[in-house]
């Protein structure tokens, strides 16, 4: 595949980088990334991946755009209120970059559909807002051998980690089981500063891009935490030994996907 002059211009700032170059840009154009959740995390991730020329971007979300989303979900506009989020996200991504093919999945993920959903993608971004979905994505990715970026945001805080098959701990190594429903607040109950999704979702996009390029060090084996009020980033080392993990360990006890019960307030809005 040869670049058109327009593509050379569009991606010039990438191609100039020695870590990217023409080869790296081609890798991006041939890559497939799935974003689960077109919200606070998924919106900025989708924007940057589309702008970067990631050739195929899948986006999964069952919801419609709500006015209360617009404080942080920067891929949607006021005119999009009421529209399916995946449609609104697709329109914005295609408007940014016609090189990108956007595949939309208007659904809630569950144990019956996630394996099929992730199977054609090179990297998965968890932009969901509840523990059942986050554990489901982890388990499905571990079982299918797919790399993914986990993240969570709340109030003025955010965190993320990257899982790559065979390279260190998964989400379940760190957090064994979802907390009982309603025991730990989600953003709907607790609030979140809009720019937090921008910071953490952009970092997730960066991890996906680095994974595709095969350059630099990924956030595997670490949890990166960000406290905006203290203006503090911490890269916390996670235990190396994951042999005892229930899903990615030597003798997994979880071999089937689990649909955990959603908190009562989240019943209508899973990722």
């Amino acid at each position: 595949m040869a670049f058109t002059n327009e593509q050379l211009e569009r991606y010039s700032r990438h191609i100039i980088l020695k870590e990217v170059g023409a080869k790296g840009q081609k890798k991006l154009l041939n890559a497939k990334v799935l974003i689960i959740g077109a919200g606070g995390l998924g919106a900025p991730a989708a924007l940057y991946l589309a702008a970067a020329g990631v050739g195929t971007i899948g986006i999964a979300d069952a919801d419609e755009v709500d006015l209360s989303n617009l404080q942080r979900q920067v891929i949607h506009t006021t005119a999009d209120v009421g529209k399916p989020k995946v449609e609104s996200a697709r329109e914005t991504m295609e408007a940014i970059n016609p090189d990108v093919t956007v595949k939309t999945y208007r659904l809630y993920i569950d144990s019956t559909n996630i394996t099929d959903l992730i199977k054609d993608y090179d990297f998965i971004i968890d932009g969901t807002d509840n523990f059942p979905a986050k554990f489901l994505i982890n388990d499905a990715c571990v079982m299918a051998g797919k790399p993914f970026s986990h993240a969570g945001i709340i109030r003025f805080k955010g965190q993320l980690m990257t899982y790559v098959p065979g390279q260190g701990p998964c989400y379940r190594c760190v957090f064994k089981e979802p907390p009982p429903k309603d025991a730990v607040p989600t953003c709907k109950q607790a609030g979140v500063i809009g720019a937090m999704g921008g910071v953490i979702g952009s970092l997730q996009a960066m991890e996906a891009i680095k994974y595709i390029l095969g350059t630099g060090d990924l956030l595997t084996g670490y949890l990166l935490t960000y406290d905006a009020l203290k203006m503090e980033f911490r890269k916390i080392k996670l235990p190396k030994d994951h042999s005892g993990c229930a899903v990615c360990g030597d003798e997994p006890t979880i071999t089937k996907l689990i649909d955990y019960e959603l908190p009562s307030c989240e019943l209508k809005s899973q990722g």
Binding site: G37, A38, G39, G40, L41, G42, N69, Q73, D126, G127, T128, D129, N130, F131, K134, A151, G152, I153, I154, K157, G158, Q159, V174, F175, P179, V184, P185, T186, C187, K188, A190, V192, G197, L223, I236, K237, S269, G271
Partner: peptide, 11 residues
């Protein structure tokens, strides 16, 4: 010592 917290939000 490190404390690692559940963080469930994202949308």
């Amino acid at each position: 010592v490190e404390f690692l917290y559940f963080m469930g939000g994202g949308r």
